[in-house]
Design a protein around this nucleic acid. Structure first.
Length: 306
DNA sequence: GTTGAGCGTT
């Protein structure tokens, strides 16, 4: 029994590879995965029905159909609809795939000369790739350029290239960036800021800073005035902030509750915060306080910056 | 009739 092998292939038409079975006639999924990284199971074509059939898998052990592997060629299963070999799904190709589907977005063009027209912009940017749209923002009354505009390309590759460099347009260096309104559209917002509930009035920003320093670099402490019994603490590292969420910490003998600082829903320019990706203005819902209280009212009335 | 870091009237 110890010399029994079963034939396994990436695909029905691929050349099979022999995978060793165990003494009891089963085959370990790990044995399959050793040759086909990322494999999560096996299937085979049932000679009678001509349908594909799954091989029974229990706790990492593959069991022969009808207690006999026979002379069939078994085909490797990969997770979900990923038919590719897992080893091909490295970070680089994942990025490539993602970029293939990446949609373009408007880019803001900063630093335009006053005289630059939309035709000028189109002429310039067309040298990089097909242009869908150009705009020069102007004063409604005077019609004077505000010195910035927008451009959109057909291809994401073009957009990437354009963002990556500075642009000499009509004698001035201009920058193309993702507008704040579009910043990090698909990045999950991992806040570096926490909400500190149940603060007492005697807690100062310095004391909070001193206290939270033990967890990581603190970049900001904000205590709303007048006193509202909560504060915001921002860390340099979002992981530190996230790790603290849900904790009850004792500061000056008082139990404070840490939760996530929720994004503000205003259009403040503070949305840029000091984050790397333009994420970040936050205020806070009312944590564990339930509605109907003074808290809800206060929280609804005022939205503090930072 | 000016300006020079920013963030898009319809």
């Amino acid at each position: 029994m110890s010399e029994l092998y079963i034939r396994v292939a990436e695909d029905e038409n691929e050349e099979p590879m022999e995978i060793p079975s165990e003494d009891d006639g089963t085959v370990l999924l790990s044995s399959v995965a050793a040759q086909f990284p990322g494999a999560c199971g096996l299937r085979y074509r049932n000679p009678e029905s001509q349908c594909m059939r799954g091989v029974r898998l229990l706790e990492g052990v593959l069991h022969a159909p009808e207690n006999d592997w026979g002379n069939l060629v078994y085909v490797v299963n990969y997770p979900k609809d990923n038919k590719r070999k897992m080893e091909e799904i490295d970070a680089a190709s994942a990025v490539k795939i993602k970029r293939g589907f990446q949609k373009t977005s408007d880019l803001i063009v900063l630093g335009l000369p006053w005289k630059t027209t939309e035709q000028d912009l189109k002429d310039y940017f067309t040298t990089f790739g097909e242009v869908i749209m150009v705009q020069v923002k102007r004063d409604a009354k005077t019609g004077n350029s505000k010195g910035f505009g927008f451009v959109r390309f057909t291809d994401y590759e073009t957009q990437t290239k354009v963002i990556a460099q500075r642009h000499m347009i009509d004698g001035r260096w201009c920058d193309c960036k993702l507008p704040n309104s579009k910043a990090c559209p698909d990045e999950p917002m991992r806040s570096r800021k926490i909400f500190v509930g149940r603060c007492t009035e005697d807690m100062t920003t310095d004391e909070l800073r001193q206290y939270f320093m033990q967890y990581g670099e603190v970049t900001d402490v904000f205590i709303p005035k007048p006193f509202r019994a909560f504060a915001f603490v921002t860390f340099a590292d979002d992981q530190v902030a996230q790790a603290l969420c849900g904790e009850d910490l004792i500061i000056k003998g008082v139990s404070v509750h840490i939760s996530n600082a929720e994004p503000k829903h205003n259009n403040s320019r503070q949305m840029m915060d000091r984050g790397r990706f333009g994420a970040g203005g936050f205020s806070q819902g009312y944590g564990s306080n339930r509605g109907g209280s003074l808290w809800s009212l206060l929280s609804l009335i005022v939205f503090y910056q930072l």
